[in-house]
């Protein structure tokens, strides 16, 4: 099997191994592969290109300093970077220190996010699932995810019961998962 045919996760594992040995070119390749995921989620949360770029730099330099933070046997690097970038962007938005040790974050997801074509397909499905959600459910999920609001804050903002908001947030996440299980 040629390297071009390697599945994304295997290719990521080799890149991470090269990064572990200090290979700067491997870091550049990894950046080219995932910088747009990291940047676009940070930009959506922060709404500011300069602040989004700060998150981008921070996420990648942390990976360079400590490639062992990502456990390649336990999930996809692209998904992990997306979650780390979202969490860091929310920390920046709410002007708080990073709350979670990123080494503790394990992300388990079916679709492969390494290739552009695969990502385009995933994005299409996600947008489809979001479009199919009841408006209130999508809104609660997006407030929690992109604005970093707690369920209490969302309930106060929408005037709806706390329990309803909790249910909507979870149901929204599960609906996304379901879109890939069929």
């Amino acid at each position: 099997m040629s390297s071009a045919e390697l599945k994304g996760s295997s290719a990521d594992a080799s890149l991470l191994s090269a990064i572990r040995s200090g290979d700067e070119n491997a870091m550049a390749l990894l950046y080219d592969r995932y910088s747009s995921i990291v940047y676009s989620v940070a930009l959506r949360v922060l709404g500011d290109t300069s602040a989004a770029e700060d998150v981008l730099q921070e996420v990648f330099i942390q990976l360079w300093r400590n490639p062992g933070l990502f456990d390649s046997s336990r999930g996809s690097l692209g998904a992990w970077l997306a979650v780390i970038a979202r969490n860091r962007a929310i920390d920046a938005l709410r002007k708080r220190h990073p709350e979670t040790d990123i080494g503790d974050v394990i992300v388990s997801v079916e679709p492969d996010m390494a290739g552009h074509a695969e990502r385009a397909r995933v994005m299409e499905k996600v947008l489809g699932a979001l479009g199919a959600m009841p408006r209130a459910q999508r809104s609660a999920l997006e407030m929690a995810y992109f604005e970093g609001l707690t369920h209490t804050e969302i309930a106060a903002k929408t005037g709806e019961p706390l329990g309803t908001i909790k249910t909507r947030i979870r149901a929204g996440l599960l609906a996304l998962r379901k879109a890939f299980s069929t």
């Binding site: 747009s36 940047y39 676009s40 770029e53 974050v105 995933v122 999920l141 996440l173 996304l176």
Partner: peptide, 17 residues
């Protein structure tokens, strides 16, 4: 968290400067 990663992909498009 995997579901969260999927949601992140809904923003895909902008590329860094």
């Amino acid at each position: 968290r995997g579901d969260m990663a999927l949601l992140a992909l809904s923003t895909a498009g902008p590329t860094p400067p």
